[in-house]
Design a binder for these strands. Structure first.
Lengths: 145, 145
DNA sequence: GTAACTGTACGAATTATTATTACAGTACTC
DNA sequence: GAGTACTGTAATAATAATTCGTACAGTTAC
């Protein structure tokens, strides 16, 4: 998995943090610590999925178009990074006579797909607002564990 | 996450498939489709965790040292790839005045850590024997879903 | 018309992953 | 004890994935 999911969550939390204003890709990029083009690419996907509204031209940028209490990280993950949990490399060789070698790829694929469902089920419990609240608390839960 | 977890599962299933014989790193590597040195590195970790026994010298190699019905993929994952679910890239900058930027890294870290626990909980349901059975069935469940 | 934005594409730079090679150590066989 | 077939481990090379930087067309406000 690459970091686009993380960046999407960060960006949406930031927009939820300043619900009154439009934020430019440059502003978001600085906050996230990446470059504006990458932000624009990710925000473009988020727009197509209805999470944000965008406005081109002077004074334009991005603004939240959803209720941060309603949208879960699962929806964001599915929009941006669905199916990227499993590694790219594949084990075994379908041409092999040995069943273990021939079928392992399919079996691991199945396992990772199902594992991703569990992963997603957890993300369903977290909303953009949850993330924003944690961020505003300075992530104090860390020190209590 | 890299592919070491996949390779470990594949190797252990293969050893469970041929419980009578020792398998050399070269044999396992061919089955998995990688090189012997990589297999030896991974098997070395599995040995330290008690999943396999190794024997050096002529006629040596690797053999299963656990009950394939007892050992779950969760244990294997924890031995080999624990904590590798989250991407390497980090969002935000702790030095920033903006709370969102400053604390997002910690918050996402916490989320990924907890998500990994859910991921692991799923892997607890799958044993080496489960994988071996699926492989022997030619992974027919795929076509039934 | 111009300035400030987004949308998108492409190549460069960086980083992660995998492969290769090498060699010391161990155990069996003759 | 010499030779052979293994593991254990490290270092480096090759490959692939990820991220960055730049560019430019399209849009909107003034």
């Amino acid at each position: 998995m690459n970091s686009e999911f993380t960046i999407a969550v960060h960006s949406l939390a930031l927009l939820a943090h300043i619900p009154e204003h439009m934020a430019s890709s440059e502003l978001i990029a600085k906050n996230v610590c990446t470059n504006p083009a990458r932000i624009r690419k990710i925000m473009s996907i988020l727009r197509k999925n209805g999470f944000v509204k965008t406005k081109e031209g002077i004074g334009g940028g991005y603004i939240l178009a959803c209720d941060p209490n309603e949208v879960t990280l699962a929806e964001i993950y599915c929009s941006i990074s669905n199916g990227t949990l499993k590694p790219h490399w594949c084990s075994g060789d379908p041409q092999e006579a040995c069943q273990v070698s021939a079928n392992m790829h399919g079996v691991m694929d199945q396992i990772f797909t199902e594992a991703e469902m569990y992963f997603t089920k957890y993300l369903e419990q977290i909303t953009i607002q949850t993330v924003l609240d944690k961020v505003r608390q300075g992530c104090q839960e860390n020190s209590q564990q």
